[in-house]
Computed example of a mutant assay.
Amino acid sequence: MAALGGLFAEDATFVNRFGHFVRGSDAIVALHAPIHETIYRDSTLANELLDVAHIADGAAVVHFWSRLTAGVAHPAGPQQVDTLILAVLIKQGETWRIRALENVTLTNPRTGEAILRG
């Protein structure tokens, strides 16, 4: 979780795939720690960069696919979930950090059922 927190600016905002909003790298870690100690303890993420748009000197908007593969620790059992992530990155010194991130689950608009891309 320390590594996760280090990706974010201290005053970063985060919206998870369920619409939960938090502000601050400590709050982002606090949001993730309990689920990664329990239902996601045997999960993995695979990310695929889609686009980087430099919007100003030291600022960029990034879009990427993220596939969560949950293991047997998840109450619903092993499964995969795809999300599309939008992140705003800022350069602090020589390091790029996430200033804002929003994570959206891919769903069928008619049924609300989660779908996998491709």
Rank of each mutant, 00 (worst) to 15 (best):
G5C: 01
I98W: 01
R110W: 09
T95Q: 13
T105H: 01
A3Y: 07
H32W: 02
N47G: 12
A60R: 07
V61S: 11
A2D: 11
V88P: 07
H32P: 00
P78F: 04
G118E: 11
L4P: 01
S66C: 12
N103I: 00
I90V: 15
A53H: 14
G118V: 09
S66E: 14
P75S: 09
A73E: 10
N16H: 03
V104G: 11
V15C: 04
K91R: 15
T105L: 10
R117A: 13
G118Q: 12
I55R: 08
A2W: 00
A46R: 15
A33H: 12
L31K: 02
N16G: 04
D57Q: 13
T69S: 12
I115S: 12
V81E: 07
Q79P: 05
R110I: 00
I85M: 02
R110L: 15
H63K: 11
W96P: 02
K91E: 13
Y40S: 11
F8D: 06
I98T: 03
D82S: 09
G5F: 00
S43F: 00
I35Y: 11
A70E: 04
V72L: 08
T69I: 06
A76Y: 03
A9K: 03
D26G: 03
V104L: 13
V15K: 01
I28S: 00
P109M: 08
R97I: 02
V72K: 15
P78V: 07
H63L: 13
T83M: 12
A87M: 05
V52N: 05
V62I: 07
I28Y: 00
N108C: 08
L101W: 05
W65H: 12
E10A: 15
R117W: 09
A12P: 01
T69G: 05
D57C: 02
V72N: 09
H36I: 05
L31R: 01
K91A: 11
V15E: 08
I85C: 06
W96I: 02
E102T: 14
A114H: 14
A30Y: 02
H54M: 10
D26A: 09
F14H: 07
F14L: 05
V29D: 02
K91L: 14
A76H: 09
N108K: 07
A46P: 00
G58L: 04
I39R: 14
V52D: 07
R17V: 10
I35W: 05
I115T: 15
L84G: 07
P78Y: 08
I39V: 14
G58F: 06
T38Q: 11
E102S: 13
E10I: 12
V29L: 04
A12G: 02
I115H: 09
W65E: 12
D11H: 06
A56M: 02
S25L: 06
H74D: 08
V62M: 11
I115V: 15
A76D: 15
I55N: 08
T13I: 01
V104S: 15
A59F: 00
E48F: 02
H54Y: 13
I28Q: 00
H74A: 09
D42T: 09
H63V: 03
G24K: 08
S66T: 13
N16D: 14
L4V: 08
T13H: 01
A27K: 07
V22F: 00
L101Y: 08
V62Y: 03
M1Y: 06
E37S: 14
T83Y: 04
V15Y: 01
T83K: 11
A53M: 10
R17N: 14
R41T: 10
